[in-house]
Design a protein around this nucleic acid. Structure first.
Ligand SMILES: NC(=O)c1ccc[n+]([C@@H]2O[C@H](COP(=O)([O-])OP(=O)(O)OC[C@H]3O[C@@H](n4cnc5c(N)ncnc54)[C@H](O)[C@@H]3O)[C@@H](O)[C@H]2O)c1
Ligand SMILES: NC(=O)c1ccc[n+]([C@@H]2O[C@H](COP(=O)([O-])OP(=O)(O)OC[C@H]3O[C@@H](n4cnc5c(N)ncnc54)[C@H](O)[C@@H]3O)[C@@H](O)[C@H]2O)c1
Lengths: 208, 208
DNA sequence: ATTACCTTGTGAAATCATTCACAAGCCCGC
DNA sequence: GCGGGCTTGTGAATGATTTCACAAGGTAAT
């Protein structure tokens, strides 16, 4: 299949979220226009996004809410559980470990790791914080699919290298630093300070 | 001035971060190639990005690290302090309130708000958690520039409306829900579950 | 069964972003 | 002060994404 743009995947995920709400409200079908109104997309955008993956609607009628939800879950790989390890049990790592929003969407935190003896042994929402020295052994045993990196920037690359060597193929990084991974590994970064800087730029360039 | 793409602003911010590191290492000048190597951009990209704002380099030599840093800070509006309020003192709100990465880049948390009496009155990194009913009065008094929204999705739109009505023009939202703001307000959202879904997509579509 | 009305799916067009490629400019050594 | 070697700044070319616009296909009422 042709490579799909990230912006498309991002929107598919937004469509799915809205479809689930819409389904809960008891609606059977939805048009591309209704689906678009939600996230600020256009109806043509919705149809184009879906067209990369097939043909899901009925002309004149729209899309079956439940069928399209299923298709999107299938496309996004959400018809299953994903196991996640979190490296770093500090402020942000702890918040992530206790975030129900992940579990609700099929992402299960199966391990949290830290190096600080004061944190190791503690428990976060039922998951015990383990020593980072157990990381390799635990990854080999639990075969998690995704690692979240929530350690200080200086430590991030070393930890990424370790989880990659242990077989992890997908990483979500919260440390504000560029990281290297082999091509076969997907790395995404959330950089909150950067988000604020974009707001700063918008504020100083507001033309009014 | 011509409208600048968000991807450009994002990269400028990354360049600045690296320039600061580079300056700390005692380097005087840097070429577009060196600057690019960092974040995976190309040298042409760096030059094009900068060219939107002026001409900062010397042909044959490169850019003065300190002069370019200053220019980028100026462009991004980082030559000043920004005051930030955080709405929601739960797990993620508390982590954000205690995050030194913000203060280090000129973003000062001047207020944290919650509705839960158990949290109000507590203190997070020196900032006292106040009752959300004080929000309007405090915004009028402290004139913060930016609001971070860290409340449950159901409550987010109502809080956004309140901070916007109070005069806030820039919002960073952490609730996984689409929000409406007037055109003059800049809204950005960080959606961590969405980031994991993009990883999920990458994992199921890995072609190897 | 025909008509009126909707909405999809999709090439083509338009817009937006990145990369190319090179003239112009500057440094430095001689 | 001239030439060789580098690096910028920028139009033009390419590539990617979004929007347009409409034929094709479906519904539902009569
Ligand atoms: N706090 C936030 O809201 C926030 C927001 C965005 C990004 N971040 C980033 O997330 C990272 C963590 O931030 P934080 O605020 O949670 O800091 P923190 O100091 O509270 O937590 C960091 C944790 O990582 C652990 N750690 C350090 N080295 C380690 C190693 N080699 N192996 C395992 N664990 C190790 C520490 O023991 C500590 O518990 C930083 O890179 C920070 O920039 C934090
Ligand atoms: N925990 C995470 O790591 C994480 C990650 C990403 C996104 N989020 C999102 O951030 C938001 C908060 O998540 P959390 O995990 O911190 O939840 P939480 O329950 O720990 O915190 C939510 C806080 O908001 C407060 N609140 C509720 N309504 C309010 C109102 N009207 N005014 C003021 N305060 C109010 C609650 O009292 C509570 O303290 C949610 O939308 C969640 O989806 C959380």
């Amino acid at each position: 299949m042709k490579r799909i743009a990230e912006s498309t995947v991002r929107r598919l995920s937004a469509y799915l979220r809205f479809l689930e709400e819409f389904e809960a409200q008891g609606h059977q079908t939805i048009s591309s226009g209704e689906l678009a109104a939600q996230g600020g997309a256009t109806s043509a955008q919705v149809r184009k996004d879906l067209s990369f993956f097939g043909s899901f609607g009925k002309r004149g009628l729209g899309y079956s809410v439940s069928a399209l939800s299923s298709s999107l879950r299938e496309i996004l790989g959400l018809g299953r559980q994903w196991n996640v390890v979190i490296v770093g049990a500090g402020k942000i790592g702890a918040a992530l470990a206790q975030y129900e929003g992940f579990r609700a969407r099929g992402f299960n935190v199966v391990g949290v790791y830290d190096e600080d003896p004061a944190r190791v042994g503690g428990t976060l929402d039922g998951v015990v914080v383990r020593d980072q020295r157990e990381l390799e052994a635990d990854i080999a045993r639990l075969k998690p699919h995704i690692a979240l990196i929530a350690v200080p920037a200086e430590a991030a690359q070393a930890l990424v290298d370790r989880v990659v060597r242990s077989g992890i193929r997908a990483i979500l990084n919260f440390a504000p630093t560029p990281l290297m991974v082999p091509e076969k590994v997907t790395l995404r970064s959330v950089n909150m300070a950067l988000e604020l800087e974009i707001l700063s730029y918008a504020l100083v360039n507001a033309d009014d």
